[in-house]
């Protein structure tokens, strides 16, 4: 019977022989494929090739870039040009690579394993192909899973930002009309209706200016000026307060609430809830 010390050899015998030739071949082949991809990628990055596969694995990025370029061309009044052949091949190649080739290689191997219930390393070309498929599929699927919720949140953020800005402009527009009315009040003599006789004291907002379809306004005297508060009708938490002097000049702007149609919920769980409700 061996002693405990003899059970622990100082050197590991046969370490050099533990690698099978199939494993080495698969490993070397996968490595060389990866190097070739990086080499071509790097060449393209330095514009040494006319055909750029920079976004080859993300065809929707190619499409989005083309969409933006079309929009800029239209905005500049330039006629739209046909999509170049390299972009078409980038998008098509990307789609074939990530949606057809990668998943096919990967899923075929998974299926073979499920059926045979043994490792597929018996055939090195197949195992190499499955590794390539996994290398293509897994990162892209990860990117898609991450990008999808971000895209959805961004979409709704942008959707809300537009009406919010319009609402703000409507409230400010009412404030400008009131400021002009304050000036008119000051310059009118007291003998006239709604005249301040050189002072803003006693100013009241006319009913047609106090309430508009977009906001409610109220005033409060503050020395030689008047403080005007505009509150959004759509979002009551949204307020703009300004000071108006006798010349109708607006100053001391203070903004309250958020300038959106609806105050969006904040926080992770609220954003998540909005995300799922939006689907």
């Amino acid at each position: 019977m061996k002693s405990k010390i003899e059970d622990i050899p100082l050197q590991v015998e046969g370490t050099k022989d533990e690698l099978s030739i199939r494993f080495i071949t698969s490993f070397l082949l996968t490595t060389l494929i990866a190097l070739a991809v990086i080499y071509v990628w790097d060449l393209a990055r330095l514009d040494r090739m006319n055909f750029s596969p920079r976004f080859f694995v993300l065809p929707w990025v190619v499409a989005a870039g083309q969409e933006i370029e079309n929009g800029l061309n239209e905005f500049s009044g330039r006629p739209l040009e046909p999509v170049s052949l390299s972009i078409r091949f980038s998008a098509l190649g990307g789609m074939l690579l990530i949606a057809v080739l990668g998943p096919t290689l990967f899923l075929l191997e998974m299926r073979a394993r499920a059926i045979a219930r043994h490792s597929s390393l018996a055939s090195w070309p197949r195992s190499t192909a499955s590794i390539v498929g996994a290398v293509i599929t897994i990162p892209v699927v990860s990117i898609i899973l991450l990008a999808a919720p971000i895209q959805k949140v961004m979409f709704y953020e942008l959707k809300e930002a537009g009406p919010g800005q319009r609402n703000t402009r409507d409230v400010v527009s009412g404030l400008r009309r009131i400021a002009w009315d304050v000036f008119q009040y000051r310059v009118k003599p007291k003998s006239m209706a709604n005249g301040g006789g050189g002072s803003v004291a006693g100013y009241t907002i006319p009913p047609d200016l106090a309430t508009t379809p977009y906001a409610h306004y109220s005033v409060s005297p503050k020395g030689e000026s008047i403080e005007v508060l505009g509150r959004s009708t759509r979002s009551p938490s949204v307020t703009i307060t300004i000071s108006v002097d006798g010349n109708g000049s607006m100053s001391n702007w203070r903004l309250g609430g958020e300038f959106r149609d609806e105050a969006p919920p904040t926080g992770f769980w609220s954003s998540l809830k909005r995300l799922f409700l939006s689907y």
Binding site: K16, L19, I21, I24, F27, L28, T30, T31, A34, L35, I38
Partner: peptide, 16 residues
């Protein structure tokens, strides 16, 4: 075999 494996390991763990 180990010569090629070492080369591959350097590619994956160092270069990449």
């Amino acid at each position: 075999k180990w010569f090629l494996t070492a080369f591959c390991l350097f590619v994956w763990f160092q270069f990449v």
